[in-house]
């Protein structure tokens, strides 16, 4: 009888401990779209050399990337329905021309509770993407809903130089 009581108490206590455990947040705690850089010529992903990307009106002119990169995040502002980003090309051959592209994303915010560990956040539903056409040829939107999953949602196709162009 005593053994049964002890076993039952231990089993219950173990269950209580297991019930209190948490797996943690395995996803992101914010919803930020990720954009990959692609070549307009062949559609393959490329590494853009000497590029600066930042938000238009970002505090302290802080940059999202500086240098060479094959992708960038484009964090959206929750309090307004549109966010713009600049793409500044700093290669030697282009620096003198101060070529900059601007990409603007229009969206609506959706309050969303992800999970106990990841918490609450804003999801975004992208309605439109517009951009200038200096070096950006086109932009593809793969999924209009921005969630906290780490997915590439936007593809930016750049005009790239080919061997034929050099000749």
């Amino acid at each position: 009888m005593g053994k049964i009581l002890i076993a039952a108490t231990l089993a219950t206590a173990t269950t209580a401990l297991c019930a209190c455990s948490s797996d943690g947040c395995s996803e992101n705690q914010t919803c930020v779209p990720r954009a990959g850089f692609y070549s307009y010529n062949d559609g393959k992903q490329i590494v853009v050399d000497s590029i600066e990307v930042g938000g238009v009106g970002a505090p302290n002119d802080s940059l999202l990337i500086k240098g060479s990169s094959r992708q960038t995040t484009l964090p959206l502002r929750a309090n307004i329905p549109s966010t713009s980003f600049f793409f500044r090309y700093t290669q030697k051959s282009l620096a003198d021309y101060a070529i900059t592209d601007t990409l603007t994303i229009d969206y609506s915010t959706i309050p969303y509770f992800a999970s106990e560990d990841c918490g609450a956040m804003f999801r975004y539903s992208i309605s439109r993407i517009s951009h200038t056409h200096n070096l950006i040829d086109s932009v593809a939107l793969l999924d209009s809903t921005v969630t906290n999953l780490d997915l590439e949602l936007i593809r930016i196709y750049f005009r790239t130089q080919t061997n034929t162009d050099n000749q």
Binding site: V32, G55, P59, S62, P75, A78, A120
Partner: peptide
Amino acid sequence: VTVPGGYWK
């Protein structure tokens, strides 16, 4: 719910 400002502060 308080959503942190992140990059935009």
